[in-house]
């Protein structure tokens, strides 16, 4: 279980999170929604810090190494599971055993043909999927994802989110699209100006709360 009790976070002079209390049970799929600057990313980071060992994170800027292949970037997700020497060996010559583990994940994301392409040479959407593949390859029970489908076209976005929510037990992700959030999360947290505006099961989210969330300042 992840829990924050009355937590505030500030960067320099600005308060990014104000007095947040949140409990997340194992197995929940939670979506954070709200306008830009609401503190969604900060909240994700703060929660991630609690569970770092057993969680993976999909960054908004992907945080990939553009000079390496998709395979190596995905492999990085389990760098801590292998001996250093094996890691180096695998860097020089991708090991068959690892390729076999990475391939199905990439396949499910429609990325199998890019396995040995340099990440820097891929499109934004492909890079984002590579970042997701890395988080999935980590094979942990909790995943945090910051706008994981921002560069993926709406049609594929659904597929990708379905994949994430099925493969991982607990998923907490932020999204711009309310529709996708309602579709793939069972619990929706609406954030505004560093505070939690509402925290509801997805079937109780209505137009009224949403208009409160997105109304102009």
């Amino acid at each position: 279980m992840l829990r924050l009790d009355k937590v505030s976070v500030s960067y320099k002079d600005t308060l990014a999170l104000k007095n947040i209390t949140i409990h997340i049970q194992e197995g929940q799929k939670v979506a954070l929604i709200g306008p830009s600057g609401a503190g969604k990313t900060t909240l994700l980071y703060t929660l991630y810090e609690l569970e770092k060992q057993h969680a993976s994170f999909v960054y908004q800027d992907y945080a990939l190494v553009p000079q390496l292949s998709v395979f190596h970037n995905v492999y990085m997700g389990r760098l801590d599971h292998y001996h250093t020497a094996y890691n180096l060996f695998n860097l020089l010559k991708p090991q068959k055993k690892e390729i076999e583990k990475v391939a199905p994940i990439l396949d499910s994301l429609g990325m199998l043909d890019t396995m040995f392409k340099r990440v820097g040479a891929l499109s934004g959407g492909q890079q984002q999927r590579a970042a997701i593949a890395r988080a999935m390859f980590r094979k942990v029970e909790t995943m945090f994802a910051d706008e994981p489908v921002s560069s993926i076209d709406p049609h594929q976005a659904g597929t990708v989110l379905r994949l994430i929510t099925h493969a991982t037990k607990t998923v907490i992700f932020s999204l711009h699209s309310v529709d996708l959030a309602l579709q793939f999360a069972e619990r929706i947290i609406g954030m505004r100006l560093g505070q939690i505006l509402f925290d509801l099961p997805s079937d109780q989210v209505n137009d009224h709360v949403l208009s409160q969330l997105y109304k102009p300042c």
Partner: peptide, 26 residues
């Protein structure tokens, strides 16, 4: 920036060869 995405307990050597060296190699 790639370093933040590394698993927290991966060895420094692995981190260097996967996350730093490729970026500065050229």
């Amino acid at each position: 920036s790639p370093l933040k995405a590394f698993p927290p307990h991966s060895s420094r050597v692995s981190q260097f060869f996967y996350g730093v060296l490729p970026a500065i190699y050229a």
